[in-house]
Design a protein around this nucleic acid. Structure first.
Length: 111
DNA sequence: GCCATGGCTAGTA
DNA sequence: GCCATGGCTAGTA
């Protein structure tokens, strides 16, 4: 039992909350989420959270992209779905998976 | 294209 | 030991 009750590790909790707060039609990068969650170098951990928890927690996983502004998933392994979901929210994505970050980057409000 | 990075957990002892 | 990264560089066009 690595986990108490239905609680996850602190970083994971924060990452999940942040991902859930990305509004429709906006995108954030793995590193951006990691940074705001308090660990700028933990982008990979964010990827892991998305991979393992998106289904059960209904995370808007498609709103997280690479720092280069592109869809990270390989074709045939989520790329098409992510692109379609983003476009359904009004986000322009090229056939190559380049997102129009210019207009759709999530800028969280400071608290 | 390469390689260092961080956080968590499965699974062994 | 996994993971849906990131950033810096070599080397092509």
């Amino acid at each position: 039992m690595r986990r108490q009750g239905s609680r996850y590790a602190p970083f994971t909790e924060r990452a999940v909350a942040l991902i859930l707060s990305i509004p429709r039609g906006r995108v954030a990068s793995y590193g951006q989420i990691a940074g705001i969650a308090g660990s700028p170098a933990a982008a990979r951990q964010v990827a892991r959270v998305l991979h393992s928890m998106s289904r059960t927690l209904h995370l808007p996983w498609h709103r997280v992209i690479s720092s280069r502004g592109t869809i990270s998933l390989p074709r045939g392994e989520g790329f098409e779905t992510q692109r379609a979901l983003l476009m359904s929210e009004g986000v322009a994505v090229t056939v190559d998976g380049a997102v129009d970050v210019r207009h759709h980057r999530w800028v969280p409000r400071v608290r």
